[in-house]
């Protein structure tokens, strides 16, 4: 049964990818890339990758589609140029594809239980992580404790993305949006006419933020964690901005404070690492945080998930503010 679901989802993915390649209207491609991420996420669920499906859906369909839409909102929705040098590209692509297929010939079959990767490092995570780290969700325990330095790198990558948007577009660019709107005489640049939508969204935003907090602190026992919580929290803010306009949203939280929150998030994560250093353990070794190592692990994971959540939330909202502040430039 699972095989049939896998194969159908994969054929849908192939179909969407071909459609994305053929259609030349940018808006249609963005919609199809939204569907592509949804399909990917359901494929991940059917392959038991629950946290990854969570993140891929929240990021691929949510944030990426919203950012792409605000980009083509500020630029143009027409793809004019025909594909250049298709034959050469087809050659290169087929060559790489052939090498890859040649490479997978020796790989273990799909779902084969005695593949090497299931017998070397992974068994210890599955057996020992409850005694050593004390969280049911093995992925969270690896993410935050065994390979915690990778997650610090991940947080810094998100922080870099936010910094580059701030460096390239700049805070003043975002502030200028307000007076550019007023100059153009558009007083209410929001979806004022949608009364029903406004009430529903006003009702939903607090629930969404509450759900984000649930996901944040539920990371140990079920799918979820800092990154997913940050994205959902940011989608609550994005809902607010879409409904009530960028000016109102910027009055709620200004881009400058968002960059401070992001910096504090990364510093929380790094700070936990440095306190473990000062308390005698290695960098990011949570056992030294509390007398009882298991509690230390819980405290450490809690703090760094908080750091990841704050950083991701503030950077996602910051990038969205920067992109939607370019909206008025085109007219």
């Amino acid at each position: 049964m699972e095989l049939i679901i896998d194969i159908t989802l994969l054929t849908f993915l192939g179909l969407t990818a071909l459609a994305i390649n053929r259609i030349d209207k940018l808006f249609c491609i963005i919609m199809l890339s939204g569907i592509y991420s949804l399909l990917c996420a359901s494929l991940f669920v059917s392959m038991d990758a629950v946290d990854v499906a969570f993140t891929e859906a929240a990021v691929g369909t949510g944030i990426a589609t919203v950012l792409l839409l605000s980009t083509i909102g500020a630029t143009d929705t027409q793809q004019r140029s025909a594909p250049q040098r298709p034959l050469f590209a087809l050659l290169v692509v087929c060559a790489t594809g052939a090498i890859l297929v040649y490479g997978t010939m020796d790989m273990p079959a799909f779902g084969d239980p005695d593949a090497p990767i299931h017998h070397h490092v992974a068994p210890r995570y599955l057996e020992m992580s409850q005694q050593e780290v004390g969280s049911d969700n093995i992925v969270t325990s690896i993410l935050s404790s065994y390979r915690g330095f990778d997650t610090l790198g991940e947080t810094v990558v998100i922080f870099t993305a936010g910094l580059s948007v701030v460096g390239l577009i700049g805070f003043r660019g975002m502030q200028k949006f307000g007076d550019r709107q007023r100059a153009a005489g558009i007083t209410q640049d929001d979806m004022g006419k949608h009364l029903v939508l406004r009430i529903v969204i006003k009702m939903f935003i607090p629930l969404i933020l509450l759900f984000a907090l649930y996901v944040q602190f539920h990371g140990d026992f079920g799918p979820g964690g800092g990154f997913q919580a940050g994205v959902i929290f940011a989608s609550g803010f994005i809902f607010y901005t879409l409904m009530f306009g960028l000016d109102a949203a910027m009055r709620v939280v200004s881009p400058r404070t968002l960059s401070y929150i992001a910096a504090l998030g990364v510093l929380t994560y790094g700070g936990v690492g440095i306190t473990t250093l000062l308390m005698g353990g290695n960098f990011l070794d949570y056992n030294v945080l509390r007398p009882d190592p298991l509690q230390g692990q819980h405290l450490g994971i809690f703090l760094i998930e908080l750091g990841v959540g704050t950083t991701v939330f503030s950077i996602m909202v910051l990038i969205f503010f920067a992109f939607s502040s370019r909206k008025g430039l085109r007219q």
Partner: peptide
């Protein structure tokens, strides 16, 4: 013996500090 970790941590954590000022 924490040298190897400190080597990467100093620039990594001074970057957010730059943003806070």
């Amino acid at each position: 013996n924490h040298l190897a970790a400190i080597q990467v941590i100093i620039p990594l954590l001074c970057a957010p500090l730059c943003m806070l000022l």
